[in-house]
Amino acid sequence: MNPVNYLYLAALLFAIGASGVLIRRNAIVLFMCVELMLNACNLALVTFSRMHGNLDGQIVAFFTMVVAAAEVVVGLAIIVSLFRSRHSASVDDASLMKL
């Protein structure tokens, strides 16, 4: 098997995650789909690291993870406060320019 297949898998997971972001209304699921996309990227980065024979790709993937963690913390906090004020986690409910 050619390791390029990892890249194809990453592309597929990314596309699935992206369609999830676009299709789902629940903010939490939406976030999960974003995480899925980030993970797909990480897989691609790790594969590139193997391809080039150095560790820089892994470093970038590591940073991606850290940033993703930060993002999730803030994002979930936003969802929680949104849910508190609206009693709904649907992103479509927040369609107006005001609360």
Partner: peptide
């Protein structure tokens, strides 16, 4: 897959941080 690709550290971090922390946060 990370482990299989030789990224041992990342593989473990993926399990600990992602599956362990972030998904639990979710």
């Amino acid at each position: 897959f990370y482990l299989a690709n030789g990224a041992y550290f990342l593989g473990i971090v993926q399990i600990v941080v992602y599956t362990g922390a972030i998904m639990m946060l979710f």
